[in-house]
Design a protein around this nucleic acid. Sequence first.
DNA 1: TGCCAGGCCGGGT
DNA 2: ACCCGGCATGGC
Length: 217
Amino acid sequence: MHWWPARTPFEVIVGAILTQSTAWVNVERAIANLRGARLLSPGAMGRVSAARLAGLVRPSGYFRQKAKKLKAFVRFLQRNYSGSLTRMFETPTAQLREQLLEVHGIGPETADSILLYAGEHPVFVVDAYTHRIFERHALVEGKPDYERVRAFVESSLPRDSALFNEFHALIVNTGKNWCRKGAPRCDGCPLRDFLPVNSPYFALTASSAMPLSGGPA
DNA sequence: TGCCAGGCCGGGT
DNA sequence: ACCCGGCATGGC
């Protein structure tokens, strides 16, 4: 779907932080502000003040928190990789994931989004939609926490970043259209017709047949 | 008008 | 190991 609307890996990372619990349309304004201020590079963002940064990312909500998080990431990148994303992404996946989780403001979903969408590391991104869909379809054994869902998907599909990318994109679209919070349970969702389902392949097949409008791209 | 959006942190059990 | 309040703007 080529759905993550970013021009560079750094912009993907910025978007991943800014979109935390926030509608993408608000993130777009914030990123436009950053672009206008020529701050969409690790070096420039490292030099700007947190207060100035906060003003620019204001439309994305939680703006003081997010300014702090962006600063924390570029500081981490500078300290550990001399500001080079290329060098950062040369780090083995599991090791880099642990490092990212240490950074203030980067939790499991943001870390995995960075790994997959900015670095093309083969990890599956679990988000609110993934949780809701997999829980409603009872695809995961036991309590469907983040690591269980991730382990289930990653062990059910070939370890291929392009596939994880596409699969997650399809899930988010399915979620936006049919699995929003408060929506009638599975009402109109194309996945419903595939119950009982016990493999993500079924979800992938079903999702491919649905309209793909409404994405952030 | 109120609910929700592709979370995460820090402090409490 | 959970659980919860706080963080904040903009669209429907």
